[in-house]
């Protein structure tokens, strides 16, 4: 009222709240990154600049194991999840609307809404039974669990891409003698690729980052990087954890940046 345009920036205190929010968001991260370069072994007292904790983490076999495990789980789980999400997205967009379609959207996205701890406990109970029946206690359980909660994350960007795609392109391909399979291979797939890459990257980051479900599902000696770090924090903490987290952060930033550019180029 009074002024012609409403601009949220003119509200009293807006700048202050914004500054505080950013400060609170990024200060802890900045501190974490800074202390990764601490020469001393404290995470609160600065004793000079050094790469020693990065070297130490790099040479720590427990860290190596956990990192490798995280990577294997993330690659396998997000690959399967992306494949499943792609077929699900095709099946829910390349069809005429029918009764129950909305229900299917909701069903696919349920894992986003179910509290993670509930899924974790449920999986713990089911998998402990399966472990007894089958005698198998390998990485398969973690991969299956990660695949399951990664699917909706992979699904969302793929579906968004499919929905924004002009469906007359596929009709044009069919009109030009392309069978449904050729239409998919030569038209749908190339146009969908940025969505699939985005879906894969999202699923990959989500899997890499997971603590709760992994902590419940893993067998002994199956620590991933995040659960290893959690374990370390329970004991005496050194800047090694900071160093690992910093590398993690750098990788995530790299991935998200790459994802941004890939999407922009092909849009």
């Amino acid at each position: 009222m009074g002024s012609k345009y409403f601009d949220i920036r003119t509200l009293p205190g807006f700048a202050f709240v914004a500054m505080v929010t950013f400060f609170l968001l990024y200060l802890p991260i900045a501190a974490l990154v800074a202390y990764a370069f601490n020469a001393g072994s404290s995470i609160s007292d600065w004793e000079g600049f050094s790469f020693r904790w990065f070297a130490s983490a790099w040479q720590n076999t427990a860290v190596q194991d956990a990192a490798m495990r995280s990577l294997v789980i993330a690659v396998v789980a997000s690959t399967i999840a992306t494949a499943a999400a792609t077929t699900a997205a095709l099946a829910t967009t390349r069809t005429n609307a029918y009764r129950g379609l909305t229900f299917k959207y909701a069903f696919i996205n349920t894992p986003l809404m179910v509290p993670e701890i509930v899924t974790a406990v449920a999986l713990l109970i089911v998998f402990s039974r399966v472990k007894i029946w089958t005698g198998y206690s390998g990485l398969g359980y973690l991969i299956a669990a990660h695949t399951a909660f990664c699917i909706p994350f992979a699904y969302l960007p793929i579906r968004a891409r499919l929905e924004s795609m002009d469906s007359s392109l596929e009709r044009a391909a069919q009109d030009l003698y392309a069978t449904p399979w050729m239409t998919f291979r030569r038209v749908t797939m190339p146009l969908l690729r940025p969505g699939i890459i985005a879906g894969f990257m999202l699923a990959f980051v989500i899997s890499l980052d997971d603590v709760v479900i992994t902590e419940f599902v893993k067998s002994g000696g199956q620590d991933t990087l995040p659960t290893y770090m959690l374990g370390q924090l329970r004991r005496e903490t050194t800047p090694e954890v900071n160093a690992i987290a910093t590398v993690f952060l750098a990788l995530s930033v790299l991935l998200v940046t790459a994802f941004f550019f890939i999407n922009r180029r092909k849009a």
Binding site: D166, S168, L169, R171, A172, A173, D175, L176, V187, P190, L191
Partner: peptide, 13 residues
């Protein structure tokens, strides 16, 4: 039979 679409539907890739 081939069609010229209202939106042209040229393959952008």
């Amino acid at each position: 039979v081939n069609t010229v679409f209202q939106s042209y539907a040229l393959f952008p890739h």
